[in-house]
Design a protein around this nucleic acid. Structure first.
Lengths: 129, 129, 129, 129
DNA sequence: GTGGTCTAGACCACG
DNA sequence: GTGGTCTAGACCACT
């Protein structure tokens, strides 16, 4: 899986990393149970510090997206364990969506175009529960 | 319009402010050409620093959501000027949506539920071009 | 509040820190809404690195024990917000207790002595909901 | 006795092993003087490295829970030798309890519920001195 | 060889 | 002046 980092972005490196891995899982680029690169390896590949990668992995672990097997490093969580979600998530999703839709509306993107865009993106998601 | 600030949120105060005003414009709570409170007034109402409000206004201006007249203060941009979409915006929107949809997918929210949620939110938007 | 760190302990420094602050909150040594020392200050007092203190604070924040106010630093969460607990916690508590009680039993501490010990400790807890 | 290992847990494998055996002894699942599986056997059953099991056994031996006879393998210590309490143990127990009770208090578990929980767990302990 | 922890010191965003 | 981020490099625990 290809991961690209923007050093000049306003989002922290570890968050960019976290986001791309989440997307990778959802699109199926990273299969369930698939092994992730080691902290050191990924850090070297991206030319960043190991602690930065470490932080990204810690967050992903804490969020339940990956598990750390002490013997073989990090891997994507098995499908069954991913769906444990509180109602918090929906509320948070709603809040994020409201802002995005507000901006889209003002910029002249109407609902049908927006929904079409969503469909396109959903079509990329190969994640199987 | 009611603006509420969470001092202990992860998102910076000025960004919370900016977001709520954008949403206010999109929902029609803030009409086109409507005058916004003065920087000093709003800062006092919310109990925060004037520089913070100032920063929010500057960003909104730079993004084209509001116009600032040195004599009359800030007001919401007229409808006509808002629609300057630009492919930048669409690309950025797509990126944000991709992340949100990825997370939703993994958490078990399927496309129909997601689209339904979007519809609900779109129904709140009263912004007229 | 007095915090003491054991550099030679097997529990990580940030966790020792986290534990002592949790106990401080429960015993009332740290009142609700009370301001915690700054990261730098505490690091200097204890002779450890700022990032270590930072990590402890991050965890406490993520666990809901403290909140970070961008203007004035970290403070103990208000009483009302602390009690939001899932059933997870009880299960986890049960597991921890089982191990402790197993060890106590084998070492010859009977139930009455154990319960008495609990009572003594509970008497130190001044935390008010 | 059934031992289950979580490869993705935060607690080291050898410690999980050690804990479960201690609990097994306290609940009576493992009788005094009962023979434990050989290191090799247990490692194979659990699909882990023999060194890991070895480490767990070493710790249990050093803590006095089991005795290791080079000819006959490991077995649970006879009842009489277990009760060597020592004030160390009580102090350590007190420290562990303090943290647990602090967390429980903040999470809104009151003393009566806590004590009830302890009673339930004590009822499972069949260890006879 | 893996991730986890810690350090010393730097720079940035926020208010 | 606050916490947040990042680095380079070191050592440790676990398997």
């Amino acid at each position: 899986m290809v991961i690209s980092i923007h050093l000049d972005s306003d989002t922290p490196l570890y968050e960019q990393l976290r986001n791309q891995i989440v997307i990778g899982i959802a699109t199926g680029e990273l299969a369930a149970e698939e092994k992730l690169p080691t902290v050191r390896q990924l850090a070297e590949d991206l030319g960043i510090n190991t602690m930065t990668v470490n932080k990204a992995y810690s967050i992903l672990k804490q969020e339940g997206y990956i598990v750390i097997d002490r013997r073989h490093g990090a891997k994507v969580s098995p499908r069954s364990t991913q769906t444990q979600d509180g109602s918090n998530h929906t509320a948070q999703l709603e809040e994020q969506l409201q802002l995005i839709i507000a901006q889209a509306t003002i910029k002249g993107i109407d609902q049908s175009r927006f929904q079409a865009l969503c469909s396109t993106i959903f079509a990329q998601m190969k994640y199987q529960h």
